[in-house]
């Protein structure tokens, strides 16, 4: 079984659109959305949810009213102003447990907090594992781990030889969780100042995992100077540029229709996307 993770550093470079195209070109694979903070792969792949699971992240404080003596000690010591009039505001609570330790009546307990859900779904192009973190919940790295572990199990069950994962933007903990143990990281970038700025950092992160790392420049013809700059930078970083996708209004149109661009079947991006996919398959096959 091989795993491909698509990442970008900066958000909005077209990562999810390219993954949507790959899903159709692969025919049958396990699709995995690791962007649990703001998942959006479902917009293109239209999954039907088969199984829903709860995700418990960090612990938060809870007051047992029958034991509480209203002494006010917890309220006085809470640095996050999460306790007011004997009530805990779970959005403000950071789970530091100071209240739990100082309560003389042992009226506070730390309870695992429901921070999100994850799902196993069906799509036209294979099963999909995805998640939704609750409002203002932390710990997305842990949820990404959970999602990827399940993705491997489901892929095994269905005898699928490929997992394609959509990574979250940025270079933080959830990105690391989506790269660990993957066979290949495809970095989707664009020829803008911030695209250039983020490329070096994300390539360094990916190369720390010993996976194949390659770059794809999306909307490359928007700024040909910046595009060349990215190609030079990639060479310096010793990562190949395996695809250059032109700006194509069909990409935006496909998003509006909620389908992968390859299903729309028109526009200047079709052929380069097909070639990019061949390159990806070639690199993964050689590993």
């Amino acid at each position: 079984m091989k795993e491909l993770t698509i990442i970008s550093g900066k958000g909005g470079t077209g990562k999810t659109s390219i993954l949507g195209a790959f899903a159709t070109l692969a025919g049958s694979s396990l699709l995995c959305d690791c962007d649990v903070d703001a998942a959006n792969l479902h917009i293109l792949l239209n999954p039907s949810i088969k199984e829903t699971y709860e995700f418990y992240g960090e612990k938060k404080a809870e007051i047992l009213p029958e034991l509480c003596t209203d002494c006010g000690k917890c309220e006085e010591l809470c640095q996050f102003k999460a306790i007011q009039k004997g009530q805990i505001n779970s959005y403000a609570c950071e789970g530091c447990a100071v209240c739990y330790h100082v309560c003389p009546a042992e009226a506070i307990k730390m309870k695992p907090h429901l921070s999100g859900h994850w799902y196993i779904s069906d799509t036209k192009w294979g099963p999909m594992v995805h998640a939704k973190l609750g409002i203002a919940q932390g710990n997305s790295g842990l949820l990404v781990n959970r999602v990827r572990k399940k993705a491997r199990e489901v892929a095994k069950e269905h005898n699928l030889s490929l997992i394609i994962s959509d990574g979250p933007p940025g270079i933080g903990c959830p990105v690391i969780s989506s790269l660990a143990g993957t066979d290949m990281a495809l970095v989707v970038t664009e020829p803008t100042a911030s695209g250039i700025h983020d490329l070096e950092r994300i390539v360094k992160v990916a190369s720390g995992f010993g996976c194949i790392t390659a770059v794809c420049i999306n909307k490359y013809n928007l700024d040909e100077d910046n595009c060349r700059f990215i190609e030079d930078l990639a060479e310096k970083l010793e990562v190949p540029v395996i695809g250059k996708i032109p700006y194509d209004a069909a990409m935006a149109e496909a998003v509006l229709k909620g389908i992968p661009v390859t299903i729309l079947g028109q526009g200047a991006a079709q052929e380069p996307l097909g070639e990019l996919w061949q390159q990806v398959k070639h690199l993964l096959g050689a590993r």
Binding site: L77, Q79, F80, C96, A97, V98, H101, V102
Partner: peptide, 10 residues
């Protein structure tokens, strides 16, 4: 560190 103060209180 989240500056919760737990360590210095306790």
């Amino acid at each position: 560190c989240h500056s919760c103060g737990g360590c210095w209180y306790l």
